[in-house]
Amino acid sequence: MLFGTAAGAFALALTTMAQTNPGQVAFSLEREGKLTEAEAAWDALAKQYPTNPEPLAHMGLIESRQGHYAEAIKYYDRAMALNPRMPGLQLNLGLAFFKAGDYKRAIAELDPLLKAQPDNQQLSILIGMSHYGLEQFSEASPLLKQASDRDPTNLTLLLTLAHSCLLSHQYPCVLDAYHRLVALNAESSEAHMLAGEALDEMKDSEGAIREFRAAVATNPKEPNVHFGLGYLLWTKGHDPEAAQEFEAEIANDPHHLQAMLYLADTEIRMNKMDDARPLLEQIQKTDPDIAMQHLDLGIVYADEGRKQDATTEFETAIKIAPTNVNAHYRLARLYRSMGMTAEAKVEFDKASSLNKAEDDRLLKIMSTIPAGKK
């Protein structure tokens, strides 16, 4: 967004310095875009004047302009050791860390600068995006909100803020961003999807479905829009309509594994085992480590009388997801049908124990809620 500003300000500061020292030729080469020759000239000066940070800082800038951030950081670090107060140097070092994906060190360099300049838009964005990159969404959101408030028409920034708020469970923030997004772009399907996800987390399933329907109507080709609507319909037991949405997502993206998985599960719920099996077997070839796929394939095989194959699938599902009650229960029933009563009892007991543990967990939560709020 604004990342070029730091390098420009830094170069401007160095221009003045270069005009008053032997770096004029090196700087002229750099300004003309002759980066290889310029870096060689600065390198010669760095050796001639080992206590002067300017040649090293220029070499870092040249490497950064070429996308060689690891090399740039080395030069900036050497310059910082000589003069940590050199104008623009710490900012460019933090920027290099950011562009290299080392967000933790970027924050360490940039945060002191933001404390000294709390209204600096570029620093707010850089540090906010660094927290976002580290999945520290609670820390990212207030910085991104400040930046978005200063630049209210920046859709990219507003969408990033909305995602950060969603991922840190700040749902009122998501809905506020949604209203602002719609005001800027009434045809934003992603805005409707964000609102739908927030409403779903707030247990407003009807509102969530309404927003995802709006997203589909706005842009039926938006990635994941049909899957999101299909999933919400699946959770409500609206299987035929959910299947249509999963099929629409697969039409948009033939390699969408989640849409294939939930379509297969929906087909099983509608007793269309023959339709579910090829989907599940295709998923298994692509990603064999999905518990739900093994569970559903076990259900299909058991329905077809392939008991040994079903046993293998249920056991695999349990290995991947040991707390899956349904997998233990179905394996127990299968063992019992095969006359393996001892093994069946073990699985029934596990399923019962897992159910009780979940009931106890919910009871503990409920017991902490004041009576008037239950």
Results as ranks from 00 to 15, higher is better:
residue 281 E to I: 05
residue 348 F to G: 05
residue 355 N to H: 12
residue 265 D to G: 14
residue 326 N to W: 00
residue 282 Q to M: 09
residue 326 N to R: 12
residue 346 V to R: 12
residue 292 M to T: 12
residue 343 E to T: 11
residue 271 N to D: 13
residue 238 H to K: 09
residue 348 F to R: 08
residue 365 I to K: 13
residue 320 I to A: 06
residue 243 A to K: 02
residue 276 A to L: 09
residue 270 M to V: 07
residue 301 Y to K: 06
residue 334 L to G: 00
residue 354 L to H: 05
residue 246 F to N: 00
residue 242 A to M: 04
residue 287 D to W: 05
residue 274 D to K: 08
residue 293 Q to I: 02
residue 353 S to F: 10
residue 278 P to V: 04
residue 366 M to F: 12
residue 370 P to D: 14
residue 271 N to P: 05
residue 279 L to F: 05
residue 348 F to A: 08
residue 344 A to G: 10
residue 322 P to N: 04
residue 249 E to R: 05
residue 303 D to I: 00
residue 240 P to K: 04
residue 365 I to H: 09
residue 270 M to H: 02
residue 295 L to I: 08
residue 336 R to T: 01
residue 352 S to N: 15
residue 299 I to F: 07
residue 342 A to L: 14
residue 277 R to C: 04
residue 240 P to Y: 07
residue 244 Q to N: 08
residue 332 A to V: 04
residue 244 Q to C: 00
residue 306 R to K: 13
residue 338 M to Q: 15
residue 323 T to C: 02
residue 327 A to M: 05
residue 361 R to T: 14
residue 349 D to P: 03
residue 344 A to E: 06
residue 260 M to V: 04
residue 365 I to W: 10
residue 328 H to I: 00
residue 353 S to G: 10
residue 250 I to P: 09
residue 277 R to L: 08
residue 244 Q to Y: 00
residue 358 E to Y: 14
residue 358 E to I: 13
residue 337 S to I: 07
residue 256 H to E: 07
residue 309 D to W: 03
residue 286 T to N: 07
residue 239 D to A: 02
residue 279 L to K: 08
residue 242 A to E: 01
residue 276 A to V: 07
residue 349 D to Y: 01
residue 280 L to S: 03
residue 287 D to Q: 10
residue 352 S to A: 15
residue 305 G to A: 02
residue 252 N to P: 03
residue 295 L to P: 10
residue 272 K to Q: 12
residue 293 Q to G: 02
residue 368 T to H: 11
residue 272 K to L: 06
residue 349 D to I: 05
residue 278 P to K: 04
residue 274 D to P: 02
residue 284 Q to I: 00
residue 272 K to F: 07
residue 234 W to A: 06
residue 340 M to Y: 14
residue 315 E to R: 10
residue 276 A to Y: 05
residue 246 F to T: 09
residue 364 K to I: 12
residue 368 T to D: 12
residue 348 F to H: 11
residue 361 R to A: 14
residue 250 I to G: 07
residue 253 D to L: 04
residue 260 M to A: 11
residue 329 Y to I: 03
residue 261 L to C: 13
residue 329 Y to H: 12
residue 245 E to H: 09
residue 267 E to T: 06
residue 293 Q to T: 13
residue 345 K to L: 14
residue 298 G to Y: 09
residue 359 D to A: 15
residue 340 M to L: 15
residue 288 P to R: 07
residue 312 T to Y: 00
residue 320 I to V: 02
residue 335 Y to C: 05
residue 321 A to N: 11
residue 310 A to N: 00
residue 254 P to I: 12
residue 300 V to P: 01
residue 357 A to L: 08
residue 267 E to M: 13
residue 242 A to K: 05
residue 235 T to S: 13
residue 287 D to L: 05
residue 356 K to F: 12
residue 272 K to R: 13
residue 236 K to E: 13
residue 370 P to K: 15
residue 326 N to L: 12
residue 330 R to L: 13
residue 314 F to D: 02
residue 344 A to I: 11
residue 349 D to S: 09
residue 296 D to N: 14
residue 284 Q to T: 04
residue 291 A to I: 07
